[in-house]
Amino acid sequence: MEELVKATVIVELKDGVLDPQGQAIQQLLVQRGYSQIEQVRVGKKVEFELSGVSVEQGRTMLAEVADKLLANPIIEQYRIELE
């Protein structure tokens, strides 16, 4: 059985891009007494299982997928984690 490479791509808004969802969550939490929460940023986690590729090939492929589709470079950045 071929070994699966598990990978995660985290897509998040770039620093400085306003995150209205994060703001709404932060404000609500502060209202509920969690006054230590100064900032909340919401992102997306996309999980992959890859077969027939090495970890390095997987990384290259997912970078391409992230550039083409998963992240919009105007507002978002991403990072890839593989195991």
């Binding site: 891009v17 306003l18 209205p20 969802q21 709404a24 919009n72 105007i74 507002i75």
Partner: peptide, 10 residues
């Protein structure tokens, strides 16, 4: 050019 994000008021 540009992007269309979630409305400010969600």
């Amino acid at each position: 050019p540009g992007a269309l994000m979630l409305n400010r008021n969600l």
